[in-house]
């Protein structure tokens, strides 16, 4: 067994320090060691997208990285989207448009959309559809998710 390494990360603005074997997946480190249970694990081979997080501002699959690789990084997970006890406009839009059912893929969806609307605040519906295609949802049929993304974009444009 390889020795544990120190892992220092900032998650949702909070500094964390932990120790992990090199093989420990970042998704497991977030959940098991930091007890940030919002990030969900759905396939552990990078396809379902439920574990998507922002890693230094970029969306990545946390099941395809080792925790030791994250040292020094700034991470954002679903727990970090709402601020001051208030839903983010994306979360509001998801609620208003029924863009989630079981809610298991939702953390990955929200992080994906959060990044997408930052890069593309005025998307077409087709772009929104493509953006969420990296996260599998088995419940919704995606239609209401795409509707929510478009509505969120509008909310955010108005607020900006």
């Amino acid at each position: 067994m390889a020795d544990k390494r120190q892992v220092k990360v900032k998650v949702n603005g909070v500094e964390y320090e932990g120790y992990a074997e090199p093989r420990k997946l970042l998704s497991d480190f977030l959940r098991d060691d930091l007890e940030l249970l919002g990030t969900h694990v759905g396939c552990e081979h990078g396809i379902c997208g439920a574990c998507t997080i922002l890693f230094n501002g970029e969306p990545i699959r946390s099941c395809l990285m080792f925790a030791v690789q994250a040292t020094g990084a700034e991470i954002m997970t679903v727990e970090g989207i709402a601020e001051n006890g208030k839903l983010h406009p994306i979360q509001e839009a998801f609620n208003e448009h029924h863009a989630l059912q079981c809610g298991f893929c939702t953390p990955g969806m929200l992080i994906t959309v959060y990044h997408f609307l930052k890069e593309n605040p005025n998307p077409t519906e087709e772009e929104a559809r493509e953006a969420v295609s990296g996260v599998l949802c088995r419940c919704t049929g995606y239609t209401q998710i795409v509707e929510a993304v478009m509505a969120a974009a509008e909310k955010m444009r108005i607020a900006a």
Binding site: G46, G49, T52, F55, E58, P59, I60, R61, L64, M65, T112, H115, A131, S133, G134
Partner: peptide, 9 residues
């Protein structure tokens, strides 16, 4: 290539 998160990494 895959989806955006794959290309970011």
């Amino acid at each position: 290539i895959g989806h955006l998160p794959i290309r970011f990494r």
